[in-house]
């Protein structure tokens, strides 16, 4: 019997490409977020409201990840933002290589903010670094307040939590306090926003926070609670 000592991370290849992406982003002074949630929590809707809010004042590019169809990219294209759709064909998450390839077909001239909408899945994307500055997790009120405890991995890795669909609070069995408490038990440093894409409540707060971060990338503002995990 003989033993070969290996000690290698299984996802090292992904991590290596993610490092490369991160270097590209920082060279271009791009602020990059990885938007994650379960299917239908409102990632694309938040993107739409965000693009609407910035109204081209801040140039935003989008990478859409979906298992099938380019529906989400079509929704984004209406806002005249550079967008590329990645179809994973069954793949449950985006990985760094897919993002690296997608970057090749995006015109990033003048772009300050790149938002990557991951595949709707609260489990798998948490383990794949794409090279982003931070993960932003969306949880909607219709999913209930126990999601952070059921899917802690995602909440551990995120820096920001957007609680979406707050307009539906009167109709669903979801306590805001419980949801926040659960999330903060998993990750006390989460920055929390509460939004509704229907009434647009909370969108301005979310967007101005984003905008501060964009400036921060230019070396203007500093440290507003954004942490890389």
């Amino acid at each position: 019997m003989s033993i070969i000592t290996v000690e290698r991370k299984v996802l090292e290849k992904n991590d290596e490409i993610a490092r490369r992406n991160r270097a590209t982003f920082s060279q271009r002074h791009l602020f990059v977020i990885n938007l994650v949630s379960s299917p239908g929590s409102g990632k694309t809707s938040i993107l739409e409201r965000t693009l609407e809010y910035f109204n081209k004042r801040v140039k935003v590019a989008v990478i859409e990840g979906d298992v099938q169809t380019d529906f989400d990219a079509q929704r984004i294209a209406r806002y005249d933002a550079p967008v590329v759709q990645i179809v994973t064909n069954g793949g449950c998450h985006l990985d760094a290589k897919l993002v690296e390839d997608a970057l090749g077909s995006l015109d990033l001239t003048g772009v300050k903010l790149l938002i990557i909408e991951n595949v709707g899945n609260l489990v798998c994307p948490s383990n794949y670094d794409l090279g982003e500055e931070m993960k932003v997790v969306v949880a909607s009120t219709t999913e209930g307040d126990d999601k952070p405890l059921k899917y802690p991995g995602m909440f551990q890795h995120a820096s920001v939590l957007i609680i979406n669909k707050i307009d539906l609070l009167p109709y669903v069995n979801c306590s805001m306090n419980t949801l926040k408490r659960n999330a903060l038990q998993i990750n006390p440093s989460l920055k929390v926003f509460e939004t509704s894409c229907t009434t647009k409540s909370g969108i301005a707060e979310w967007c101005s926070w984003l905008e501060q971060n964009i400036h921060h990338e230019d070396g203007e503002g500093k440290d507003i609670g954004a942490t890389r995990r």
Binding site: M1, S2, I3, I4, T5, V6, E7, R8, K9, V10, L11, N127
Partner: peptide
């Protein structure tokens, strides 16, 4: 999530 060791059975075994 890491591969640590690989164990082989040699000719001798």
């Amino acid at each position: 999530l890491q591969v640590t060791e690989i164990e082989l059975e040699n000719e001798k075994d």
